[in-house]
Write a protein that binds this DNA or RNA. Sequence first.
DNA 1: CTTGTACTGGACCGACCGGTCCGATATAGT
DNA 2: ACTATATCGGACCGGTCGGTCCAGTACAAG
Lengths: 198, 198
Amino acid sequence: MPRNREFDIEQALDQALNAFWLKGYAATSMTDLMAAMGLSKSSFYQCFGSKREALLAALSRYSVRELAETRLHFNSAEPVAPLLAAWVRHSIDSGACRPSQRCGCLIVNVAVELAPHDGEIEEAVRHHLDKLAAFLADTIQRGYADGSIPKRFEPAQSADMLLNLIAGLQVLAKGGVEAHRLAAIVDVQLDCLLGQTH
Amino acid sequence: MPRNREFDIEQALDQALNAFWLKGYAATSMTDLMAAMGLSKSSFYQCFGSKREALLAALSRYSVRELAETRLHFNSAEPVAPLLAAWVRHSIDSGACRPSQRCGCLIVNVAVELAPHDGEIEEAVRHHLDKLAAFLADTIQRGYADGSIPKRFEPAQSADMLLNLIAGLQVLAKGGVEAHRLAAIVDVQLDCLLGQTH
DNA sequence: CTTGTACTGGACCGACCGGTCCGATATAGT
DNA sequence: ACTATATCGGACCGGTCGGTCCAGTACAAG
């Protein structure tokens, strides 16, 4: 009868996710990971296979979590426009994997660092981006139907524009651009999309 | 009388810049750098001081170059709007440090990888972003004056929106998003800013 | 008790990391 | 020729990298 595992896989993976999110992949050493996860190397490799595979698992986990939270946010009988505005504004705050740390968005971080050089990572990134875009497009279509969003662009175009907006904001935030400028960018973009500022 | 230096500093720095641009800072080893620059370690350290200092020098060089090219692009008697549209569209193509490689934008890459953890790098990033934003704001003001851009937003707001647009595009491109979607994002955004699509 | 099994700890591995050191070298002046 | 000087080459450094290995351990079943 085998010895029982002493740690919880999902919890350990969350810790790994946070470590990668904070420092990036290359700059996070195995020592960093072991410290974050509270595991020995043997337990880590036994369970996750390799550093890269741990990252892939973390990406998947992050994606599932983000998409679920997004769906929950829009799961309301309220008109879509204010929900959308709140969601975009919230995205500026969500790049904090730790208090007072600017971690950005794990997908964005990994897209920049690894996607051009690793096909499987790129697929994971694409998978997330495409699913989010599809959900946003449906949501915008809903906004057209409920009349809260003026039909100015194809839903897919607006969705991609939102993706781009969020990605850009994460970069500028990590680069140290002031919060009031980020908020102003959001105002301008919401004006374009929804036809009013607040 | 001292021995003469056998390499050109600017040229070596360009090669270093390309190496960092392609692989990122942490993932570019000293061996990679020496191969790219064609130098021995002694020559490198004698001249540049450290890996990090070489990156700072490369960032500065990239920034000067990008800002100069941008100024040149807008140094025209033509109305601003079409110049702006062409400049934004060109930005999608300029993320290729090498043929067939998606390198994105060095400033964006470094903002994501290093800025939150290194104050001096963050300053360099901020310096570039702020200078570019200031130039774009002046340019947009010029567009208001020549009548080619409708006065919908404060020039600084529009400039920041453009910064955000470019940053987001670089991320999505590195993440593998198709070119036609990127082009459509540009169309939508130019419509918002200039009041027409092409 | 023994057995079989998965898990754990920690020593170990070859390779690599950024950087140091110093003799050899190129160069012009005397 | 010698001298002074900055540059170059490459051996070397201590530490770190991701990953391997195997004895020890925990556990339930027989």
